[in-house]
Amino acid sequence: MRIPPKYTQKGAIALLGGATLLTLAILIFIIVFILEKGLPVLSFNFLFKNPEDMGRAGGIFPTLIGTIILPLLAIIIATPLGIFTSVYLSEYTKETRATKIIRFGTDCLAGIPSIIFGLFGYIFFVITLEMGWSILSGGLTLAVMILPTIIRTSEEAIRAVPKSYREVSFSLGATGWQTVKKVILPNALPGIVTGIMLSIGRAIGETAAVIFTAGSSLRLPGSILDSTRTMAVHFYILAREGISAENAYGTAAALIIAVLFVNLSAYWLMHRFISKRS
């Protein structure tokens, strides 16, 4: 017996709609769960005081510094590399074997799990280049990790700049680089910045790649060669070693707020960018 199309249609709506609602409900649950338990712990003192007794008491100030400085370093290294690469891919070459190789390479790089970046950063930066567990090793490792995201989003943003803009620039006698500098990059900027923001979000939440390269020292770093601990790593250690559930929730809430803030800003920027275009 066949079910009449009218009923399969209704069943499909219920099932597919249910799946969508479930997905949204999970997202909301995670955010609400962490914030509900963590917000009461969050306070000015918690954020800006030094931890005591391995994080059992006190605040998370050094990890706040670590969370700011590591992604910042990664962005400073990866942004010029990523933008130059995407300019080369979109403006300076036709589709050749070379660009195909570069593209395949960035795709591969994007799919590599963070633990592999951690292993690489450990053996290359920490051991071979003798940087030790440091902000520098961690920042370089994170830079490698976020590079594909920056290349891809920048390339998309550059390709979205209308062709006529380039033609006008060229017809005025501008060279390729002048066109890139004065016309293409300014117009692609919001898209590029969106990619950078998303990368910062990823770097803030990263644990596996950071713990093996930047280490987990709870002291305030004095130089770029000192080890540091990010909020994500601190949260992982507090939760896993059962040091303090209360402080774990507080750190998680700070982490979620930071990540959501960065990502929502990225979306807001992208939205403005798109609505300006159309």
Binding site: T23, L27, I30, I34, I204, G205, T207, A248, L255, I256
Partner: peptide, 16 residues
């Protein structure tokens, strides 16, 4: 909004 799920750090998933 759903893509925000990808932004949540994996340690938070583990904790949940």
């Amino acid at each position: 909004t759903i893509e925000l799920l990808a932004a949540i750090p994996s340690v938070v998933y583990g904790f949940i």
